[in-house]
Every structure is written in structure tokens, then in C-alpha cells.
Simulated assay, not measured.
Amino acid sequence: MPATPVPLSFSTTVTRLRAAGCVFAEDEARLLLSTAPAPGELDAMIERRAAGHPLEHVLGWAEFRGRRIAVDEGVFVPRRRTEFLVAQAASLAPPGAVVVDLCCGSGALGVSLVADVDGAELYAADIDPAAVRCARRNITAAGGRVFEGDLYEPLPAELRGRVDVLLANVPYVPTEEVELLPAEARVHEARVALDGGADGLDVLRRVAAGAPEWLAPGGSLLFETSEHQAATATAVVTSAGLTPRVMTCEDLYATVVVAARDRAAPSGSPSAPGPPRGGG
């Protein structure tokens, strides 16, 4: 009969995490100890974390705006800075808003937003099958629907011209900089959720080109970018016929562009062709 695993103590867990180079070993130990369903599984979780897997993948969830969001292996982990994007969206969304979460990853943005908007409708899409499976766990529970495909392509046609808030957490890391990312992202998250093309804005260009067709009059596209990309990103959405403004949060080191469709503007042309991309 196999021996029963001996429960690992807090101090032992901290020691193993510190030895693996985990800077916040105490905090991580508490999360692992509170999440592990059994002593033997805790040991396996510590081994995975020590091997460099993102803590959120090891736990199976990430905290985002005070909620636990399921995050499966290989799926983009929602970043704390992106909470700023959702906060901006929440300030714009009217009751009953139609919300679309493009490049949805785990679905954290859409789920978090509609929780703050009475009667909101949520639709999401991603090209990565693993992300879609994960997002369905989160978004279906919030009453939303998730579609698999390239950007707008899989969305229901009846949403054209009706979207009040279009969240697009597009990948914006330039291709040549992806290899400079921390291993937790570079190795363990889908490249399609990170790589934004030569200047990091390829996916944004395609999202912006299609946005006027899908946004309701007065609706807004919101996306995150880096500080040094903001000027080019605003030019991209301006050329698509949207009116941008840049919002920043120093505490979260976040830069968000809010690009509105004019209330009197006609719908735009269909989204431009290009390489398929997923997101975060």
C-alpha cells in the first residue's frame, strides 16, 4: 500500500519557491497551499512553478478586478495593467450595452466589464482553440457567447452596427521583441497572443479597419498599447474614421486608446484582410 503523502508546510513551500527564484515566494506559497486539493498535488504544483510555469497556469486561475478567472495551460494570462482598460470601458458602457471582446484569451475583460453593466450582452472571439475553450468556461457562466475564428469573422452578422463597447486586447509586441519577453510569457503563452507583427500594430490595423462597420453610432473601440506606440496607434484609428483619445495610468503603467465612432457617421467598410491573429 503506497504511503500517504506528508502535507508540505508553509515554510517548506516558501523555501522551495525561493530556491527556484520566485521573488514573491511567501505570497505564492499561500496561494498554492490554499488552492491545492491534496498534498500530492501541491508537490506537483510546486514543481511546475519551480520549472518556470506562470503561477496562474499552475493555480488554474488569475485574479482580475477582484474576480477569479479560469486560465488554462497555454492561454494568455490577463495582466493587472489591463484592469485600467476595463475601468475605462465601464465608464462608457450604457445599461444593456452590447459588448464584444475580440482577441479574448481567457475572456477576463468581457466578463469583468459586463459584471458592472446592467443587462449587458457579451460576445467574444479568439482564433486560438485553447483560448476559446478557456473563455467558454468563464463567459458562458456570465451569460455570454464565445466564437472561434479570426477577429470579426466568426461574430454573428446581426451585431454589425450594434456594438457599444468593442474591447480588443490585441497583441502589440513587435515580432523581433517577442524573444526578449520573460520566459513565463515567451514559453508558456501562445505566440499568437503576443506577436503584433513588425511594429506591433498589425492586428490593431485590422481591428481598426473593421471597427466602424461593427460599432454602433457613438460606440467605442478600446485597446491597450505601449507608451511609445500610442502616437502611431492613434493615427491608425484616426485613418479608420474613429476619434481617439489616449488614457494613461501611472500606477499600473498602462496606456489605453479609446476610439469612438461618430454618432452621425455611416458604417465603415469590412475589415481589411491580413494574417490571422489571436489575443489576450
Rank of each mutant, 00 (worst) to 15 (best):
Y123A: 13
V237A: 12
P182Q: 04
T35S: 09
A97R: 08
P217C: 08
E179D: 08
A211I: 08
A209V: 09
R191L: 02
T225G: 05
L8E: 07
G60A: 13
D27I: 04
A235H: 02
D128Q: 10
P244V: 04
V170R: 03
R16N: 06
E41C: 13
L122S: 05
V99F: 05
V114H: 15
L85R: 04
D202L: 01
L92A: 11
R65N: 04
G210A: 06
H57W: 00
D202N: 01
A259R: 07
Y152M: 12
V100W: 13
A235S: 02
T140P: 11
D27Y: 00
G96P: 07
N169L: 10
H53M: 08
T15E: 06
A142C: 12
V77E: 09
A108S: 14
G21R: 03
L201P: 02
D199V: 03
D72Y: 08
V163H: 04
R30Y: 13
L42V: 00
S226M: 12
V256K: 00
L180N: 14
D116E: 15
A216M: 13
S34W: 01
E83K: 07
P217R: 08
T175N: 00
L17Y: 05
V192C: 11
D116L: 15
D27P: 06
Y123I: 08
A108T: 14
C134M: 07
P54C: 02
V237M: 10
G279W: 01
A29S: 14
V165W: 05
N138S: 07
S91V: 14
T255D: 02
P217V: 08
L242D: 04
E189H: 01
A29Y: 14
Q88D: 12
L204I: 11
T238W: 08
I127G: 09
E153W: 10
Y253T: 10
A211W: 05
V178H: 07
R18W: 04
A168T: 03
V203D: 02
F76Q: 05
A264C: 11
Y123G: 10
L180C: 14
R133G: 11
A198Q: 02
L59D: 04
V246P: 02
E250A: 10
P212H: 02
R30C: 12
D126T: 03
A265F: 05
A142N: 10
V117D: 15
R261D: 10
H57F: 03
A19C: 00
G107F: 14
F147A: 07
P95Q: 08
V192M: 14
P171K: 05
E250K: 08
T12D: 15
T238G: 12
W61P: 07
